[in-house]
């Protein structure tokens, strides 16, 4: 489910600029995002990062709320398994992703709109790459059915 592959379809609306929220854990992924910055790696401007201490602290309701209020996509970034500053918060996030998928199904939201990724503090490149992929995926999906603006 973390693959979130874009299908072959091209986006219908050319002007569509998605809004994607990224929850990044302080210890690895937020640091990876900083490294993307220091390394001047360019990625799409559609990402809004929310810093959390651990991917394990993000309540599924927060993700569901964001998507049902019109965010076009949400990406959760945590430490690689084994690297978690709090032992295994990231694994908790991984388990919750399954629950989130089920809830999204109920809401009629495509599962690709939520993605979980491991990004380490040294993976600035990966951060940029993942954000680009996510943006491409969402662009190909089109705007969220709940988009209000």
């Amino acid at each position: 489910m973390t693959e979130g592959e874009a299908t072959g379809e091209t986006a219908q609306e050319e002007e569509f600029e998605p809004l994607i929220l990224a929850f990044c854990c302080n210890w690895c992924s937020y640091t990876g995002a900083d490294l993307a910055g220091t390394s001047r790696l360019q990625y799409p401007h559609n990402i809004r990062i929310i810093r959390v201490m651990c991917s394990g602290m993000v309540h599924p309701n927060l993700v569901i709320d964001a998507l049902s209020k019109g965010a076009d996509g949400v990406i959760m970034c945590g430490c690689h398994p084994g690297d978690c500053h709090y032992l295994e918060g990231n694994l908790k996030a991984e388990k919750r992703a399954e629950a989130i998928d089920l809830l999204l199904e109920d809401l009629g939201i495509e599962p690709e709109r939520y993605r979980l990724e491991w990004v380490s503090a040294s993976e600035g490149q990966k951060f940029a790459q993942v954000m680009k992929e996510m943006t491409d995926t969402i662009k190909s999906l089109g705007p969220s059915p709940y988009r209000m603006y």
Partner: peptide
């Protein structure tokens, strides 16, 4: 809740982003 990262605080950021 976790102080400094409460649901309302994170939720407010989500709402503001939208």
């Amino acid at each position: 809740v976790v102080k400094g990262f409460k649901m309302e605080q994170l939720g407010a950021m989500v709402d503001a982003a939208l």
